[in-house]
Design a protein around this nucleic acid. Sequence first.
DNA 1: CTGTTAGCGCGTTCAG
DNA 2: CTGAACGCGCTAACAG
Lengths: 341, 341
Amino acid sequence: MKKGHQVTMKEIAKRLGVSVSTVSRALKDSPELHPETKRKIAEMAKEMNYQPNLLAQSLRISRTKTLGVIVPEITSHFFASCISGIQDFANKRGYNVMICQSNESIELEKANIKTLVATQVDALLISLSRETNHFEHLDELYQREIPFVLFDRVQEDMPVTKITFNDQNGAYQVTKHLIEMGCKRVMYVSGPEDLYISKKRKKGYLQALKEFGIKEDPSLIKVTDLTQEQNIKVAQEIIDMNPRPDGVFCMIDPLAVDVLTHWKSKGIKVPEDMSLAGFTNNPTSAVVEPPLTTVSQPGYEMGKLSVSHLLDQLEGLASDEPISIVLDTTLVPRKSTGYTG
Amino acid sequence: MKKGHQVTMKEIAKRLGVSVSTVSRALKDSPELHPETKRKIAEMAKEMNYQPNLLAQSLRISRTKTLGVIVPEITSHFFASCISGIQDFANKRGYNVMICQSNESIELEKANIKTLVATQVDALLISLSRETNHFEHLDELYQREIPFVLFDRVQEDMPVTKITFNDQNGAYQVTKHLIEMGCKRVMYVSGPEDLYISKKRKKGYLQALKEFGIKEDPSLIKVTDLTQEQNIKVAQEIIDMNPRPDGVFCMIDPLAVDVLTHWKSKGIKVPEDMSLAGFTNNPTSAVVEPPLTTVSQPGYEMGKLSVSHLLDQLEGLASDEPISIVLDTTLVPRKSTGYTG
DNA sequence: CTGTTAGCGCGTTCAG
DNA sequence: CTGAACGCGCTAACAG
């Protein structure tokens, strides 16, 4: 299957008996052209349905007006929201977006970066995969002076702009909420421990305990790799504990939902037997039974801010100095922690 | 902010005192080169960290190995799954993907197509917006011989390859299931009526009624524009009906979830008071209380098939003749229709 | 086996 | 006000 022929400036020049450069000038409304020829050319361009070849244009001006985005997973509602925000605001400023997913694999992440760079994107927005625990590929971007920002899943030591949520404070708020609702033994269920957000949220959890003078208890911290299988395993382990915790804060909503589902199948009542809270405010968390207390992270907003700042930098509207943008999270109390709004 | 310099073939040619074309040939492992010079060039390329400029390459061979994708909404789990399938299988065959969302707006859809075409994508995969009820922009693609396929939200009369689900049969199965579970008055809640899937699913609904000798009752068909507001309004209207239906088939899961949530807030019990079913098998449908009977549509599979067939056509592995690929759906019976698996 | 030449489509001097 | 000439980075036909 072959693509049909596309009209070029050359052809419209030929038809009108003018030079290509004249056409080029006319099409970008250069002031130093005779209005009449300008009009004629515009007309002919329209008639022939001329569409500029962005490829050639990009090659010439060595800018593609295209941004590359890498996220761990498109099917995650949170990242989809980020993408949505990035798209909308990139488009508003005349930029296109190429999206890739790393499927939480560092190898795919590297490959994605490589092809995006090869296609000459002007800059990148990256959210790191779960596996990413070394950073040579980012160092290389940095050394090659390819502009990029990190969002949500960031590497703290990288000297680039990072957009994150106030994860620690969000976790602090949930934990505090659980305590205030009467929980005495609050557990934290973490994802992989070297994940940025696992660490931050643990900090917030510990901060709240400390504030209420509760001693940290290692048996009240569990770790899962976030596969459904492990999540359920952890859910069962909690049931089997003696004494059980009376409140469980899960690092992320899908984990909390897995736990909730398993508990329900085992006859555990939430929040009567144990309170349960998540993080992210996925759509799902609002419709499970009981509705899940969680922390909302506006992904769309994060995407919007990330791309806006990046473009500001690209276009010289903002300093090149890397900055750290921290977005606020909001506690969303629901029935799963005994809250009755 | 400026991008750093990128190594070109010219530079490595200069360093080695050979011509650019030799470098070009070496880099693509041409058989007619002296192994030694080939080795040298490869080495130098590596040393200088050469990365080919796909832009220039594309311009030269007038193929970008990039596909454009347009979906109504990235944040919909179903479309995210499609995208995921498209990405994975496009990448496997050496293609990149540019994704756009139309936000259910025909104007944005047109704009998206325009920019994707301008960036010279080799082909397009399009799922139409809800608003799209005229098709000049697709006609133009067709006339300009830009290869494209339509998936899920298709226009039936367009002479291009279309990938759809067997929506009618899916709707038939749900309706039949409701009847078999004992419902005497089954209602169909439709989305906008000129939507392809609204029509197809209605057909399936009617087909099942007919098969069971149930007369079609216009008062048992309602329409919503699928905004949450209208969905809730319809949910209330159903409560207010006298007599009420005893089973309600909602065209799509989010609608069913809205209805369920509203009913629960009004004390209606599902399935005791009324049975309820959706369509799509969103993750949400499995975790609401009660879990929602629905019809599963494998989006990833749809994306995979769409892109695979498109690439087959592009690369001459499949005939250019437009075909219609119809994927099977599967009934997923759950508690909301009284099913106890 | 390798260099020279000639574009791909466009923008930008530099002359007229 | 307009045309000719050049080059972005790369590939390919033609020589040798």
